[in-house]
Design a protein around this nucleic acid. Sequence first.
DNA 1: GATATTTATGTTACCGATAACATTAAAGTA
DNA 2: TACTTTAATGTTATCGGTAACATAAATATC
Lengths: 336, 336
Amino acid sequence: MVTIYDISKLAEVSPMTVSRVINQSGKVSEATRAKVEKAIEELNYIPNASARYLTAKKSKILSLIITDINNPFFTKVARGAEDKAKQLGYRLMLCNSDEDIHKESDYINMLISTGVDGVLITPSEDKSKKNLRTLTKYKIPFILLDRKVEGIASDEIHGDSQEGTRKVLQHLIELGHEKIAIINGPLDVSTARERQDTYIETLQTHGLPVKDDLIFQSHYKNKNKDEVFSKLLSLDKDEWPTAIFAANNIIAINTIKELRKRSIRVPEDISVVCFDDLDPAYDLDPFLTVVSQPAYQFGYTGIQMLIDRVEKNAPSEFRKIVLPSELIVRRSSASI
Amino acid sequence: MVTIYDISKLAEVSPMTVSRVINQSGKVSEATRAKVEKAIEELNYIPNASARYLTAKKSKILSLIITDINNPFFTKVARGAEDKAKQLGYRLMLCNSDEDIHKESDYINMLISTGVDGVLITPSEDKSKKNLRTLTKYKIPFILLDRKVEGIASDEIHGDSQEGTRKVLQHLIELGHEKIAIINGPLDVSTARERQDTYIETLQTHGLPVKDDLIFQSHYKNKNKDEVFSKLLSLDKDEWPTAIFAANNIIAINTIKELRKRSIRVPEDISVVCFDDLDPAYDLDPFLTVVSQPAYQFGYTGIQMLIDRVEKNAPSEFRKIVLPSELIVRRSSASI
DNA sequence: GATATTTATGTTACCGATAACATTAAAGTA
DNA sequence: TACTTTAATGTTATCGGTAACATAAATATC
């Protein structure tokens, strides 16, 4: 390993002078600067981040914690985050909590241990509060992305669940649907709560009945489909929904798959709509009607906010950025 | 920040004893161990990774460098890598080189600076050699994933480009296609070279002519589509291919999109097949005929190999693992 | 020309953890 | 009982940088 001492020997100066050259701090004559730079080049010196961190307490590393790396929504978030971080001279550690509070906890400890300067996080659920408190304790700023957490005040960037839900439900109602089911994420995630509340509210506004047995609790990833479907299938014929609002893209995909398995056609027999768009490759055969959120911008702007906070350029009160969502009507929703 | 000294004061022992408790090294009496653990718990102590690294030269961090975080193939690789790393007590830094040699270079410097124990890398192209040499210079072991690099000997894990290409071309030939084009990745990527060589070889084996103007150079991500298409469209009617072999999934998707833009139907007018499967959500409407590679296992086994190397459990000669690919016939390929 | 100021460089101590060696107390052995 | 061994704990030095202070040489000021 090449160190600052190797450079100092080769350039015949003190290690401190080398440090000054590297950091462009203090006064260094042109002649010595040249000598040192030559030595650095020659030995292929790369500064040791750990040693630096130990004195400086700044790592120039940020982290993005997402809950599902296989969801194209989060992939786009990651891409935006990465671009912004790179642009402003930070490195990004990408962590995938998998909607699992324990994995999230492990990652947070790891990040503290590593000494990241800040964290952009999609908390897995309300219990994430404990993990976020740990960050606070270690004075590591964080921005909540996509989801809020009860009892945690912080900078936030997220979509407008209410507006989005309203748009997509109005779309269904305009198509003539009156029996609309919701297959939701877990209620200890803020977006799921908001979507459900707005679902109920919107139905009521339009004078439609809200039926408990058309409200299903599922999971934002790939779980307990069976339970939801056995409940759904046990409904009387005349109670069957004519449309399903899935709280995210993964749920929607799973729902359509399960329906088809049972020879129920979408959209002929039942319409399906959801939050969040799919992989761009889907443009090939645009099928699913969605409320799309600007995922890339979530990441891009989120990191910007985080860096503002890290570098203390942010106002002392917390900022909340709400990004608009857009209804994209495709073939999975049809009039009744 | 809580340090080992804070713990040592609270527990009334020396810092060294605290260190022993944390690392379960040396002898510590049950009574002191309990005292120390209580203090650690109480103060919520998290060891400082930088300080540790400085003496131990072991970070327990690995890195995975991929070339396209928006490609579901790599997302699955990442997932497999993450699972294995976590399972064996390592952390994973995910980097996205974006098929860009300079970004790759920056990331490698950053990883050296951070002191990662090893790197699982999909090199962006043959020029990556320089970057890989830097790793070698810093004695950081790496495993080549998916792609080889000329002049670099190392552990490798990749798919069988030849077998896969052969399978998918035979499939087309069996369907009666004789004019088969290839839209390839850049030839300074090993997989592209192998696919092209095998393309030529397979056509010849089957007594089919190999025509230069049916061989197109594109990019594994989202570039120079236009150039390829203007060339393709300038072909005489009777020279037109009846099938296109795209060297990866992204190229295939772009190809189909461009064809459709020009009202050319797939598969009625032209069949399209490719390497690598798409996002699992595509199962909804399985369209593209592909040669699928076990992406998850690329990551999973790749990290296993890397850790073997890092912990010096690997044989001194380099290992090459070749994973089989599988032809999945769907609707995008039809008989002529 | 003597003193004050600025510029360029060096020295020392420290960040938090641990390896290597040192010390003390307890247990085992002749 | 005296002496060796082992167990339990402590002390010191070090990893690679840098902040803070120190010093020497060059330049400016009166």
